[in-house]
Design a protein around this nucleic acid. Structure first.
Lengths: 164, 164
DNA sequence: AGAAAACTTCTTCCTAAGAAACATTTCTGT
DNA sequence: ACAGAAATGTTTCTTAGGAAGAAGTTTTCT
């Protein structure tokens, strides 16, 4: 306790205090919680909200070759457990957005592939989501702010993944 | 479609493209998803993980006068529905971290108040959380990065709350 | 070739949180 | 003063997601 990395040391232009750090991180959480619901408003075809995971799955499949990815890889990318993603895929398949397709070379893997209807929804969702991002993010912090935010986020993510 | 606020316009130093925006925002999500679990590691008294909402409740009660807040206010602050928070409070009370206390002046409101045990847990959790923030955030983006992040987050949050 | 190890998907059970309905108490307009 | 509106907390019902494990498939090692 009281080591060089804990709390405030003695220099006048030292680092942030514990409370500064906690407050800063809390602000990030609050911002995301307040904004995220806005960014998916009216994104669904029916004009309603679209659940976050659905959107992420659609976007990732949309920019994948042949609009398909292995289930397990997709699950990892959207931070879901394999079991959880199986059920999400069931729901999205039932809605007609994606279908399962077995891989000929490796019979363990099952591809999740976007249906034509799903691709249409994905395209539409992407356009609307981008428009909402311009309205609620870009217009607030500007292009510089967005660039800086992306830079910081990338640094944090890469460090987290590499670190442990 | 193709209006002045959609996609890339024509100037050479125009704004970010739709994909730039979506990628940037996606990076923020990924960073938070990767880092947040690390920041609550070993924060619980038993050395295990602590659920995010628990930590937020403890922190907010800790810095409130008399370590107490009305249920509904606390629910709003941690972004839970009133019904959801009732049950979270039940669990935390069952664990001995907080207790309910009825308000004498307004008989509708019920205060959630930190027990001595809860205060101890909150203090300890705060110290450990701050140490993890230094390790996984401050050391990566520096004091300037943290300050910039907080500034951007605050701008976004305030705009979101004021806007609609 | 054949056994062992690692992977992928799916199933079952459980917990967490939202939505809506409701009872109680307070506030507001007339 | 009083009827209606609003606020507060709880209960009930439904859904999303995690953990553990089963079954089948591929890869690797001997």
């Amino acid at each position: 306790m009281g080591g060089p990395t804990a709390g405030r040391a003695d220099g006048p232009t030292e680092g942030p205090t514990d409370d500064d750090l906690i407050t800063a991180w809390g602000l990030v959480h609050e911002a995301l919680r307040d904004i995220d619901p806005m960014l998916l408003k009216g994104v669904d075809v029916s004009g309603g909200e679209m659940a976050g995971p659905w959107f992420e799955v659609l976007i990732r499949l949309q920019r994948s070759p042949e609009h398909r990815l292995p289930m397990s890889r997709l699950a990892r990318e959207v931070s879901l457990s394999s079991g959880g993603f199986t059920k999400l895929a069931d729901r999205m398949a039932h809605k007609g957005y994606l279908a399962r397709e077995s891989c000929p070379t490796d019979r363990r893997v099952v591809y999740a592939v976007l249906t034509p209807a799903g691709r249409e929804v994905a395209d539409e969702a992407k356009v609307r989501h981008a428009a909402l991002l311009r309205e609620h993010v870009l217009s607030v912090i500007g292009a510089e702010g967005v660039a800086k935010l992306a830079e910081l986020a990338r640094a944090l993510r890469d460090n987290a993944r590499a670190g442990e």
